[in-house]
Amino acid sequence: MHLTVFDPTTIAPALLRVEDPLSLRIEESFLNATATREQMMYDGWLIRWNNGHMLRTRCVNALGPGQGTLDARLGFCARWYARHGMKTTVRISPFSQPIELDAALALRGFEAVDDRRMMAADLSHPPEMPDTGLHFELVDRERFAREIGRRLGVPEQYSESNVAQLLQLPMDAMPLLAMHRRRCVGGVLVVLDDTLAGIYDLVVDPNTRGLGIGRSLLASAMGAAVAHGAQHAVLQVAASNTPARNLYCQYGFQDRFAYWYRRAPDNFAG
């Protein structure tokens, strides 16, 4: 997987330190929706080592300050990930503990990669559905995961992990496929978590981009969320994905906070 290296000091300070209840609830919901069977807690850190292609399911989330030293926890993680053939990767968000974690990892040679934004929209005024002639099907989770995997070109070994993760997702979920003349041209997953609706895996077939399918998928997801009592829709997107971010802003989404990952150097042993 290619991950873009970047400098976190370029991120607006307002996206780095947030304390409002909604942002904290969004972070909790994100962790719930991306839960995997291959995870455990160690000294305040949530460690995940799923074999899928998504970095969020094979990284450390530093949820608490812990009792031991930072080096002791990193050493444990290095040994654990090496055991599973993975590189130690730590997700950094405004809620990471301790608060100086990002700087401490940088001093140890961890690269900052995959700059992302968590965005949210108020659903008190849901958008109208654009007329694109699409038909939306609510399908089972396994079919959705396989269809989206094919659209993304995900290798088979990763696709199986993605299917397994979606099947064990604890919350209610609505997997939607966009169909045009009986052909799947995109999809989106809506995960319900109390008054929040997480929008994940919004994918458009590369051969049909530019036809408004992404808009239709987003509007459909937001409408489904409202129908099930959600008050806010949330999603995450690469900070550099300007076309997607512009689309989301048109539908009322605004940045809530930034997050990224710190990837260990090749020779890191803790």
Results as ranks from 00 to 15, higher is better:
residue 208 T to L: 14
residue 151 R to N: 15
residue 9 T to E: 10
residue 108 R to K: 09
residue 99 I to H: 15
residue 240 S to I: 13
residue 228 H to R: 14
residue 133 G to T: 05
residue 159 S to D: 14
residue 132 T to N: 11
residue 10 T to H: 10
residue 101 L to P: 01
residue 221 A to P: 01
residue 191 V to E: 10
residue 33 A to H: 08
residue 152 L to K: 11
residue 223 G to Y: 03
residue 11 I to N: 02
residue 208 T to K: 12
residue 197 A to K: 01
residue 113 V to S: 04
residue 158 Y to F: 15
residue 79 R to S: 13
residue 130 P to D: 00
residue 23 S to L: 05
residue 237 V to L: 08
residue 91 R to T: 10
residue 3 L to E: 14
residue 246 N to C: 11
residue 207 N to E: 15
residue 225 A to N: 02
residue 148 I to Y: 08
residue 249 C to N: 15
residue 118 M to V: 15
residue 176 L to K: 04
residue 202 L to T: 11
residue 82 A to D: 13
residue 19 E to N: 14
residue 145 A to K: 08
residue 17 R to S: 15
residue 180 H to C: 10
residue 269 A to E: 14
residue 56 R to G: 04
residue 152 L to N: 12
residue 39 Q to N: 09
residue 75 G to W: 02
residue 32 N to H: 14
residue 145 A to T: 05
residue 189 L to N: 09
residue 167 L to K: 12
residue 98 P to R: 04
residue 108 R to Q: 03
residue 221 A to R: 00
residue 135 H to Y: 13
residue 170 P to I: 07
residue 259 Y to F: 09
residue 250 Q to G: 12
residue 238 A to V: 11
residue 92 I to P: 05
residue 270 G to F: 06
residue 237 V to Y: 01
residue 222 M to D: 00
residue 121 A to N: 01
residue 141 R to S: 10
residue 126 P to R: 01
residue 75 G to S: 06
residue 196 L to T: 02
residue 262 R to A: 09
residue 243 P to L: 02
residue 189 L to S: 01
residue 225 A to Q: 01
residue 192 L to T: 05
residue 190 V to W: 01
residue 81 Y to R: 07
residue 259 Y to E: 00
residue 15 L to E: 04
residue 178 A to N: 03
residue 39 Q to M: 10
residue 265 P to C: 01
residue 233 A to K: 00
residue 1 M to Q: 13
residue 51 N to G: 13
residue 214 G to Q: 02
residue 210 G to N: 00
residue 96 S to C: 06
residue 156 E to T: 12
residue 120 A to I: 08
residue 221 A to D: 01
residue 243 P to W: 03
residue 15 L to W: 10
residue 86 M to K: 10
residue 218 L to Q: 02
residue 193 D to S: 05
residue 116 R to W: 09
residue 23 S to D: 08
residue 145 A to R: 07
residue 41 M to Q: 08
residue 3 L to Q: 14
residue 180 H to D: 12
residue 155 P to T: 04
residue 97 Q to Y: 07
residue 147 E to L: 08
residue 31 L to S: 00
residue 171 M to H: 14
residue 79 R to T: 13
residue 9 T to P: 02
residue 247 L to C: 00
residue 165 Q to V: 13
